[in-house]
Design a protein around this nucleic acid. Structure first.
Length: 908
DNA sequence: GTAACGATGAATTTCTGG
DNA sequence: CCAGAAATTCATCGTTAC
């Protein structure tokens, strides 16, 4: 049985341009691994997984531990670790059966009822077991240096998971936490508003002591970056072992079909223990550059990404000039990178006119292709053959696109043909037609392309679960093996996330049904409806753009627990010392991004979101620390966390401060001082009437008081007259959230206004986070605002005093757009408000390119994606990321990562 | 536009065995 | 008295039929 490893380059192709989604797959010479015999324990071979243009080295089917060739590349240390984990993690996992709840019977009348629910002890509830040894496979996937790097990088993360310990340690370790300076009176930007600002910033600069181990950590990183890869490990191993490894890897790569010279170059450049994907990609790049220097922009992008990944001495802003100043690499490497940078990115479409970028010293055009058609044909043929496509297939492709300049089109077509060949025709005929699209070039030839679900799961969605787990998940979720739709695959991934560990084991007890099947048809309908209305392509919902590889789980390497939300104080409140965090160099620095959503998602959903946003730990805040209402939210961002200030003067911090007129009627048994979270619906009149009826008695009994209080809390009722509870008004909500009163007045129908406010940011909280941007952008900021809503982020930036040079606002609701536009005028903004795009799904790569060219880049990408499927208030479809609206998070992720990719590759 | 519609997970409190 | 387990309390950017 043969196992074929393929290196895939998956790239999103702008969906507005193509009627169908295109996944570009670059297949290198097959890497053949021969299995001795199947074993019980299977091995996933997965390399590193990068962003949308990243690489995935994977195995379609399990590779046994006894794999002869693979074992050559595995050190004995790996095998020991694997065996140890198998031995320790082999317990059977039982599906936890959720305990049922029992409601008290009498719930019809208000009197003498209780809303409390009692959990019935469930005898079937078995204790959770440790994750099974599936993750051990991932230990193997990382070569020794990779593993060490991972562990090194994990240390600060794991350390950060225990905030109490760290803060205690910081407090105990030093008294050097100092308030260095405090100054008041920083007003708003005078040029941005005709009226003097009411807010001042209280500048409190805190400095964190650099702890010894952190100093050492940074030092080590830098050193590593400067050392040749081989030399990194020479100290850890003796010369003979190193030589043996070198030879082993050389043989291994030779068997993959690569030339010896290229292999030697790759091993010298990356070291013998580098990840296969890195080596293979390096060789491919060498090949590609050798065969033809102008294959296409996308291939050169890989070179850049790899180079940047490897260059740990890179500065945060990643400007190339800075890189060169810092980089100690050889002159030859520098020339190569310069050439690559010159040829990368921004491939103009024929119909597009490329505006001149300000302050540019380089052209965005890629190098011109060979003029001679025969030369093009030969070039494409060589390229496709080098990617490992069958010669017959290559001929077919070349017949149609032999002289095509765009290499991606060729690859799309070749992939579609390959997929078609691979799939069973009989099965294809028996399957219902699918919405999954093939490249438009192929549709005339392939009417119903059969796409293997597992392939799609692994290739597009970058699933790293074992084939066994996937097989079982397919059965459990009743997912078709061919042509599964995207939402079905998302559901499958969710199921795998939840039960993948169990599925890897021989556990018969897992009786989960498909938890996501309910809304599948809804989503499909919506997509097609929107497609018919021209709002989006049917295949707009592309897979996530960033899915870091799953972390290896071993005995000593356990996934950090979900971050605690107790208190929801993020990395620190005003006046508190700030908890430090460690962002990788790939993530830190401009352009900044800022994502917000509800804190209390279904279990595991924040972890998924985190994985799609550079694996940055969410920061949970409750706005009750900044205003008179609760608003527990999670934020994932790469903003600095030190030096935050809040806007002054302080807003009303209690209900009583906000509404002093209610104090006269406030019952003594109602202890509330803060509103609960502002929802999107108002309390119904019958609730208020019922409360009134029960308050006819002068002093209601305690149980009635409790019930009334519960309703007051749920619906944010206030006492506007004796025994008269009323819902909080829109104006009061505006003030609670940090908007000016009447911010939303006049744009919405009554219910819509309430909903728009309920969906908004808490300006005070967001402003606190954004305040670190003020010294960074004294001349103003360019913002890409997704899911703008009523403009909470923009208002926050304005109130901090950051000038809004450009705001590209993407908001689908017309009334919201009108509200933002009105605020823009009323607040005397002098910058540009661009509301051209209404739907985030219409922002493809080309649109983003043109926006970047128009405005010269973005400094901040901000957005809070819809939360309906996350919210605890949703009784119907609280389905998490696979929900109809919450899946829009992936659009934020896609756009944020794409913009960051573009901006960071832009010449300064 | 109105009104009726629970489940979920975290935080908190209480119970229990040593 | 204490630690861990179990029970209870509490809050939740909402959906849908009418």
């Amino acid at each position: 049985m043969e196992e074929v490893l393929r290196v895939l380059k998956i790239e999103r192709v702008q969906h507005a341009e193509l009627p169908a989604a295109v996944t570009t797959v670059v297949v290198p010479p097959p890497l053949v691994l021969v299995k001795d015999e199947p074993k019980e324990t299977v091995l996933e071979v997965a390399g590193h997984d990068d962003q949308s243009t990243g690489l995935v080295l994977f195995s379609n089917t399990p590779v046994s531990i006894g794999n002869q060739i693979l074992s050559q590349g595995i050190t004995s240390r790996h095998e020991e670790k694997l065996q140890a984990t198998v031995a320790n993690g082999g317990g059977a996992a039982a599906a936890a059966i959720r305990t049922s709840t029992q409601q008290e019977a009498n719930n019809k009348t208000l009197l003498h009822t209780s809303s409390s629910k009692k959990r019935v002890p469930d005898e079937c509830n078995e204790p959770q077991v440790q994750p099974p040894p599936r993750h051990l496979m991932r230990v193997l996937q990382a070569a020794a240096p990779e593993e060490e790097e991972m562990e090194k990088e994990k240390k600060p993360v794991q350390k950060n998971t225990n905030r109490h310990e760290e803060s205690a340690a910081v407090a105990a370790s030093s008294s050097s936490f100092q308030v260095r300076s405090e100054s008041k009176g920083q007003g708003l930007n005078p040029s941005s508003s005709g009226t003097p600002p009411n807010f001042v910033c209280q500048m409190i600069t805190t400095t964190m002591p650099l702890q010894a181990e952190e100093k050492e950590e940074i030092h080590t990183d830098d050193d590593d970056a400067l050392l040749p890869a081989i030399a990194q490990h020479s100290g850890a191993r003796n010369g003979s072992t190193l030589e043996l490894d070198f030879t082993t890897r050389q043989i291994q790569l030779q068997e993959m079909g690569f030339e010896e010279g290229l292999i030697t170059q790759a091993l010298r450049a990356h070291g013998v223990h580098a990840d296969d994907s890195i080596l293979v990609q390096f060789i491919l790049d060498l090949q590609t550059n050798t065969v033809n220097n102008s294959i296409g922009s996308n291939n050169t992008e890989i070179v850049i990404e790899n180079w940047q990944d490897e260059d740990e001495g890179e500065l945060p802003n990643h400007r190339e000039e800075d890189i060169f100043e810092q980089d100690d690499s050889s002159e030859g490497e520098r020339d190569e990178v310069e050439t690559t940078l010159e040829s990368c990115s921004y491939v103009p479409q024929p119909e597009q006119s490329i505006g001149q970028m300000p302050n540019k010293t380089r052209t965005w055009d890629r190098p011109s292709s060979p003029v001679n058609p025969t030369e093009k044909y030969t070039r494409n043929q060589t390229f496709l053959l080098h990617q490992g496509f069958d010669p017959v297939l290559v001929e077919k492709v070349l017949e149609k696109f032999g002289e095509e300049d765009d290499i991606n089109q060729l690859l799309d077509y070749a992939l579609a043909l390959a997929n078609c060949d691979a799939a069973s025709i009989s099965m294809r005929n028996s399957m219902p037609s699918t919405s999954y699209s093939v490249p438009f070039q192929c549709q005339e030839l392939i009417e119903t392309p059969a796409v293997n679900t597992v392939d799609k799961l692994v290739n597009e969605f970058k699933c790293t679960f074992s084939a066994r787990a996937i097989e079982r998940a397919l059965e459990r979720c009743e997912t078709p093996r061919l042509n599964a739709k995207d939402h079905q695959i998302v559901a499958l991934l969710d199921f795998l996330d939840a039960h993948g560990d169990e599925l890897d084991q021989d556990v018969e007890a897992c009786t989960m049904s498909n938890p996501r099947s309910k809304e599948n048809t809804d989503w499909e309908d919506i997509r097609h409806l929107m497609a018919e209305e021209g709002q989006m392509s049917p295949k707009t919902m592309l897979p996530p753009t960033y899915r870091p590889p799953k972390k290896a789980k071993g005995l000593e390497n356990i996934e950090p627990p979900e971050p605690k939300r107790k208190g929801a104080q993020g990395f620190g409140l005003p006046g508190m010392t700030v908890r430090r965090r460690h962002l990788s160099r790939d993530v830190e620095g401009a352009p900044f991004f800022y994502f917000e959503n509800v804190a209390t998602m279904p279990k595991g959903e924040w972890s998924k979101i985190q994985r799609h946003l550079y694996d940055i730990e969410p920061e949970f805040y409750d706005s009750l620390h900044f205003s008179a209402c609760r608003r527990p939210r999670g934020y994932i961002h790469n903003l600095p966390v030190e030096g935050r200030v809040k806007i002054l003067p302080d807003p009303p911090m209690t209900i009583q401060e906000l509404m002093p007129q209610t104090q006269a009627f406030w019952p003594h048994w109602d202890p509330r001082t803060k509103f609960n979270c502002i929802n999107t619906v108002k309390a119904s009149q019958p609730i208020c009437r019922k409360i009134q009826e029960n308050l006819e008695v002068e002093e209601p009994p305690p149980d009635i008081q409790r019930m009334i209080l519960k309703w007051c809390k749920t619906w944010n009722l206030v006492w506007t007259a004796p025994n008269l509870p009323s819902p909080i008004s829109e104006n009061e909500i505006e003030e609670c959230l940090g908007f000016d009163r009447d911010h939303t007045r006049g744009f919405f129908a009554t219910t819509r206004r309430f909903a728009a406010l309920g969906n908004s940011f808490s300006v005070y909280t967001v402003a606190y986070h954004f305040s670190v941007l003020k010294p960074l952008y004294p001349n103003g900021i360019r913002v890409l605002s997704l899911f703008t809503g009523i403009g909470g982020a923009e208002v926050a930036l304005h109130k901090i005093g950051i000038k809004l040079n450009v705001v590209v606002s993407v908001e689908i609701q017309e009334d919201n757009r009108a509200c933002v536009e009105a605020w823009w005028r009323a607040s005397g903004q002098t910058g540009t408000l661009d509301q051209t795009y209404h739907n985030v799904m219409s922002l493809g790569r080309n649109e983003l390119r043109s926006l970047l060219q128009k405005y010269g880049g973005f400094d901040l990408i901000v957005g809070g994606s819809p939360c309906q499927n996350f919210s605890g208030n949703n009784r119907v479809n609280r389905t998490g990321l696979s929900g109809v609206t919450s899946i829009m998070f992936f659009e934020y992720s896609r756009i944020a990562t794409t913009v960051r990719e573009f901006v960071r590759h832009m010449p300064s």
